[in-house]
Amino acid sequence: MTDNSHAFSRITITTTDMEPRFCPGDTLILQGLPSGGDAIRPGTEIACTTRDGNTLIGQFLHQCARGIILSQISPLKITFIPADHEPILYRAIGLERYSPTLIAPQIPPNSQNTKSQNDIYNAFSR
């Protein structure tokens, strides 16, 4: 395993599989963990990347010489990650919730538009 205890990273959620805990657009803020399971308590939310590029998000359960066991969020199941897949662990230390900003459409002025914006507003506020 790699010692990345000073590394920070971010992962942006792109799937709906983990709703309602994590939604598309949410960003997990991660801190790298030292190799070995000493610094991780069972139940800690982690992200685990492997040498083949997979990233799993879940709760840490156990680590031994053969690998890591975590409770994966999506799909909900217990997952074993063998040590030969070179797992790199990150602790989830924060979450930035995605909140889209809605912009009201503007009505362009033109000679064919006979209703004013006030007329349209009044029609919708009745």
Rank of each mutant, 00 (worst) to 15 (best):
G67I: 02
C64T: 06
T50W: 11
S111Y: 07
D119Q: 13
N4E: 05
A65V: 02
T14H: 04
Q63S: 03
A83F: 02
S35H: 01
T44Y: 01
T114C: 07
R66T: 13
T15P: 05
L95N: 04
G58E: 08
C23Y: 05
L56T: 10
E19M: 13
I11L: 15
T16W: 02
Q112R: 09
T50D: 14
G67N: 00
L70Q: 00
P82W: 01
D52M: 07
D52R: 11
T79D: 08
F124C: 11
H62P: 00
G32I: 06
R97K: 06
F80H: 00
C48V: 08
M18K: 02
Q112N: 08
S125Q: 14
I103M: 12
I68W: 04
Q117E: 11
K115V: 01
C48T: 05
F22C: 02
S35I: 04
I29K: 09
G25M: 10
T14R: 10
T101V: 01
E86R: 14
A47T: 03
S71R: 15
I73G: 10
S74T: 10
T49V: 10
I103Q: 13
C23M: 14
R126D: 13
G53V: 08
Q112G: 11
I88Q: 09
R66W: 12
P109Y: 00
R41T: 15
R66G: 10
D119M: 14
F80P: 11
G94N: 10
R41H: 12
I68F: 05
P100I: 15
G36S: 04
P109A: 08
Q63V: 05
D17I: 12
I57D: 12
I78P: 10
R10M: 12
S116V: 10
M18F: 09
F80S: 00
P75Y: 09
L28H: 00
P75K: 07
P82Y: 01
I93R: 05
N118P: 04
G94H: 03
